[in-house]
Design a protein around this nucleic acid. Structure first.
Length: 95
DNA sequence: AGTATGGCGACGA
DNA sequence: ATCGTCGCCATAC
């Protein structure tokens, strides 16, 4: 039963512009504490046409969870910067 | 059934 | 700040 994905989707969908949330927190808020990795799995398989703000999800260290050279990293970085964050390396800081 | 691998997290050194 | 180590839970061989 993919109750999990529904909860995650809806919570993420309600996340305001300019905010971020960690994988673990997202999971927890959905009532699935300990399911951080599954959140990652879910986002990974997100349909390309999805309107969900996947880029607002970072890890608990306030970092982008992608290798610095990957283009997934770059896409996320750009999105975050467009919403007013400063991205130094993998670190995501408020501006 | 055992093992490896993830868009992770918490904690200690 | 950074690096290990463990714990976590689903998926894929």
């Amino acid at each position: 039963m993919e109750e999990f994905q529904l909860r995650i989707y809806s919570i993420l969908g309600m996340l305001p512009t300019g905010e971020t949330i960690s994988y673990g927190e997202l999971a927890q808020q959905a009532g699935y504490k300990g399911y951080a990795r599954q959140v990652g799995q879910l986002l990974k398989h997100l349909p390309k046409d999805s309107s969900l703000p996947w880029f607002r999800v970072i890890n608990s260290k306030q970092e982008i969870s992608f290798p610095i050279d990957s283009d997934a990293y770059l896409r996320q970085k750009n999105h975050l910067e467009n919403e007013g964050w400063r991205v130094i390396g993998k670190k995501v800081k408020p501006s």
